[in-house]
Amino acid sequence: MASAHAKITDVGISNIICNCMKLHSIVVCDTTFGKNSVLALCSGISSNYGNSSADDLGWNHNSLISNLQKLHIGGCKSVDETSLLELLSQTKMLKSLCLRDTQLVDQALHCFSGSSLEMLDVSNTMVSAAALAHVVHENLGLKCLNARGCRNIFRQESNTSGGENYYLYKDLYLELGNCKLEEITLGWGFSYLSLEAL
């Protein structure tokens, strides 16, 4: 019998990914998903299949990551900033993305190449208003946004007047007003002035 504390390792998750070539959805929140799993997703098919190479078969080397529609890696502490950057730069078809409680920073979010997002969870990360506005601008079909606990979004609010703050974050306010939000979760850093401007 396995120990109650036994876990599937990052290598184990990457092996599963490599053996499931038609994945459209990956939900691995709060697991050991990390660098090896990201490498497995981003490297695509590189080995020979019978006597034909992946190129001969017309397969895209990035097919695993580029065809994903759902990626939930919230709470995966083993995914570093570099891995997130690589991951987000290759995801083009995502409709649902959960990055809560990860090492997500602006650079990785600016590299996100998708335009089909309907759900985005960046709660408890270090993203800024500008980076979030960039993603919302490219994904106007966004229906659900969770930005609770993002301390960098409105960290300067207490040190600026309402007018200055409005111009500092107007891009985010404008983008949120343009998309089709049905649900929004906000928290730390959002004050009455923020909501009034929104």
Rank of each mutant, 00 (worst) to 15 (best):
F154N: 15
C42Q: 07
N36G: 02
I45G: 03
N178K: 07
T32A: 12
N60H: 10
E183Y: 12
G44R: 11
Q103Y: 11
N159K: 12
S14W: 06
I13A: 05
A147P: 01
S158R: 13
T82L: 15
N15A: 09
A108L: 00
L87R: 10
C111P: 03
C42F: 08
S89W: 06
Q103H: 13
N19L: 12
D56S: 11
I17P: 08
K22A: 11
V135P: 00
I16F: 13
V79N: 04
H72N: 04
A40L: 12
G141Q: 03
G34T: 04
N62S: 09
N15F: 09
D55V: 08
F33W: 12
D30L: 09
L88Y: 06
G141M: 00
L140I: 05
F154Q: 10
C144I: 04
N62D: 12
S89D: 04
C18H: 03
R100D: 14
V38L: 12
S66D: 10
A147W: 01
T160I: 11
S52C: 08
G58S: 01
S96T: 09
G163Q: 10
T9D: 09
N159F: 08
N178Q: 13
D56Y: 07
S89A: 14
V38E: 13
D80C: 14
M119N: 07
Q90N: 15
A54Q: 02
L172P: 07
